[in-house]
Amino acid sequence: MRHIISVLMENEPGALSRVVGLFSQRNFNIESLTVAPTEDATLSRLTVTTIGNDRVVEQITKQLNKLIDVVKVVDLSEGEHIEREVMMIKLKASGQMRAEIKRTCDIFRGQIIDVTPTTYTVQLVGASDKLDAFINALGSASIMEVVRSGVCGIARGEKVLSL
């Protein structure tokens, strides 16, 4: 099963490499990973999506908790949560395709953020499966480049991950 694990950690040099290293060292898998400082500049928030059974995910959270730089760990998938990912996708857009892409883009509530006579660059925000669906809807022929941010997530309601 896919899990979204959020980690609050010290914003220090080397902290990220400890987390990433742990995953490869213990043979855990990383689907996506994002990291950035929080409103408190001494803390970073890292979100990693991984696939594994309950035992593996339990080990992942326990091992993450053991890292000295890690302050808190939560498996967001255990409760109600919201996940988002940003994608920018550069498409060949000429002739009839220009209108077609624009329509698909509107349906998915994407925004065209850069235009040339032969290309569109589309920005799309949503859960990962929505981004996948958009790519599928386009058909691969027109795609020139895809860049995705990786998932970030937050719990619904009053639950927070903080000190």
Binding site: G14, S17, R18, G21, Q25, I68
Partner: peptide, 11 residues
């Protein structure tokens, strides 16, 4: 730091 990371409690 990199070489020792997997075999230390912390560095």
């Amino acid at each position: 730091l990199g070489i020792s990371r997997p075999v230390v409690k912390h560095n």
